[in-house]
Amino acid sequence: MPVLLVCLFACEPFRFSPTGLEWKHPKTLYNLANLDSLALDSGGTPRHFKIAVMADSHLWYDELKVAVERINADTSIDLVILAGDFTKFGYADEYDRFTDIFNKLKPPHLVGIGNHDLQADGVTVYRNVFGPTDFSFAYRGVKFIFFDDNARGIKCCVPKFDSLEKELAGAGDSLRIIAVSHAPPLSDQLDTAASERMAGLFAKYKVALSIHGHTHAYAYGADYGGGVPYLVADALNKRNYVAVVLADSSLTVERVYF
C-alpha cells in the first residue's frame, strides 16, 4: 500500500505500452537542430577539427553519462557522433533516457540509427526525435553522409544505394567525405553483395573515413579495399570513445578511455 501511494506521486503513474510512440518531449528533431549550428561553418577548405565518435551505448547509461562529462571537459572537440544503437529494444522510454543524457553535450552532436533502434516502433520514434535517418551536411571542408544500413535480412532497399551514390558524387572534388552508418561491411546486417557494393562506392568516391559501430569491438584500418579507412567504435560499456582529428590532408585516430 505505501509503495502504491508513493508511486502515485513519484513515478510516471500510468504507462500503456513500451512498444508505442509515447514520446514525452515536443518534436524537437535534435539532429536537425544541431545541424543548424554546424551550418555556420559549412564552407571552405578542410581545416583542423576534432570529432568524438561513439557507438552502441544501448542500456549503458552510467557509461554514457561519464562519456558526456569527459567530452564536455575537452574543449578541443568540435563535433560528437554516435553511430547508432543507443537503445536495446527500440522503445520510446529508451530514446527518452538516452536524449536526456546525450543532449547535455556542449559540442554539436549527431546520432545515427542502429539496428536495435529500429526495433518495435523505433524508426518512427527516431524520425520524431532526431529527424530523417539519412542526411548529409558540409562542415569545414568535409561532407558528412549519415545513412541507414541496417538491413537485418531485408534484401531490398537498405541501404538506399542510389541516393547514397548521389550524395557521394555531390561532394565533388572540393570536399572530403566522411560516411557514417551503424553496420560495417560484411557484418550480419549487410550481405556480401551489399557489402561489396558499399565498399566499392566508398572506394570510387575516395571516402576519407567510414565510421561505424555494431560489432562492439574497436577496429581501424582499410579492411574492405580501395584504401578507404574504416573505423568501428567500441561499445560504450568498454568505457572509451574515439577522437578523430582531421587536419589539412591528414587524419589521426586515438581511443580515449574514461
Partner: peptide
C-alpha cells in the same frame, strides 16, 4: 485493484545503472 509494477526491459536498465531509478521504471495499473 491497484498495482505497481515494471517490465523486464526496465528492470534490465535499472540493474545496470545508477542513473535509472525506481521512479523511472515503476508505474501503476
Amino acid at each position: 485493484m491497484a498495482e505497481v509494477g515494471t517490465i523486464n526491459q526496465d528492470i534490465q536498465a535499472y540493474t545496470r545503472n545508477h542513473y535509472v531509478t525506481l521512479d523511472d521504471i515503476l508505474s501503476l495499473a
